[in-house]
Design a protein around this nucleic acid. Structure first.
Lengths: 211, 211
DNA sequence: GGGATAGTCACATCATTACGGTATTGCATA
DNA sequence: TATGCAATACCGTAATGATGTGACTATCCC
């Protein structure tokens, strides 16, 4: 089984080195190598690669933008970002764009071939430092523990239903209780959350992950 | 430099195997090994480990709950989750709880010692499949480009203000327009978003990152 | 000039929500 | 057993929101 690899890298030396390295590997074939990704969409459609090596910083269009566009019509090709940057924003953006792995150029020589293997086997090759960043980003976005407003179980359920856009009437139907009971619960929720309208309660609930 | 390791694992065989494996490694020392994590908080404070190996599924308290509690007072100890589960929820919960790495029990024998090294060097050891899951979870939560409802600039401002919990009256005051104008804008927003209440509009706006 | 679009304001009506008070039931537990 | 709390339910009033209709102004572009 032949692995078709498509390369985007504006540095001529590095691009040729990558091509050369991959010709030495059995069952690997470079089906294209370009110095920018402006025509990436057509090229991917035509060349049908299994793996794309994508530099981030290229003239004309960044690799991240290219990945976004490719992902609109192809969700199966494996994309390995190849870059000198390892700051949070680049890692974050690349993953959100749809990359499957993230290699630093300085470790390309020893990591490239195993990374291609790993990404084809359903892994997500990253350097340890990047893996830690990814986890760090997730932990940040999780937000710490939500503040405790001492809502009861019932109140929490009702707040959740309210947050999903349900009216008092719909909530009453959902929980098989009277609309007056819904009123009472919501009154207490407002007291506990120190708000006095649905919107405030819902925006507080959504922002502080209470539901 | 000695590495102090604390182990939580309810399976007696595995726990003892882990201890034995680690005694064979130079500069590694098991400073404690317990069959549940009910007293984990005190034990961590007393034993001052550098690395914790934490099983997820234990009687009394799950490893995930234990990590949450430990993280409340110690953010520097490195926690490696050790589990037979690799479904999304467990991975997700463990990371959110504050774990630094995630190993499957079936690969413990060959991966444990390198993983301890990696986590101490600031990495985040994971099996390839778990790395891919982590990235998949992030990509899901990114939710690509927000859908285009063709809101005008003014409508977007007003939707944002609404999402922050402001009433019609407050919005009118904020933008120096009459309350009837606010009504008109909100009417149009509802039409464009295909909703018919504040809550639906706000929850749609927040969920789809329109504001 | 004419048309499209965005933004503004007004009036009317009905529905829904906010908030005050009051009360009953069941459960846990001190 | 007495107390407290959660959950349930009802009433009434005032405020706010939802929706339809109509209209005026400014700007941009053909």
């Amino acid at each position: 089984m032949q692995v078709n690899i498509l390369i985007y890298e504006d540095n001529d030396n590095l691009r040729e080195t990558l091509c050369y390295m991959l010709t030495l590997v059995e069952d690997h074939r470079v089906c294209g190598a370009f110095r920018n990704c402006i025509q990436a969409e057509e090229q991917v459609k035509t060349l049908q690669p299994d793996v794309i090596l994508m530099d981030i910083d290229m003239p004309g269009m960044t690799g991240i933008e290219a990945v976004k566009r490719i992902r609109k019509f192809n969700t199966t090709v494996q994309v390995l970002m190849l870059t000198i940057f390892d700051d949070n924003n680049h890692v974050f953006d690349a993953i959100y764009a749809g990359a499957n792995g993230y290699l630093l150029k300085k470790s390309v020589s020893e990591k490239l071939v195993p990374a291609i293997k790993e990404v084809l086997e359903g892994g997500a090759p990253m350097t340890p430092a990047i893996a830690r960043k990814v986890i760090g980003i997730m932990q940040e976005s999780a937000g710490s523990t939500p503040p405790d407003y001492s809502l009861t179980a019932r109140e929490t359920e009702i707040l959740r239903s309210l947050s999903q856009g349900n009216s008092y009437k719909m909530i009453a139907a959902e929980f098989y209780i009277s609309i007056d009971t819904v009123r009472t619960h919501i009154k207490r929720i407002y007291e506990k959350l120190h708000v006095n309208s649905q919107i405030e309660a819902v925006s507080k609930a959504l922002n502080e992950k209470l539901v």
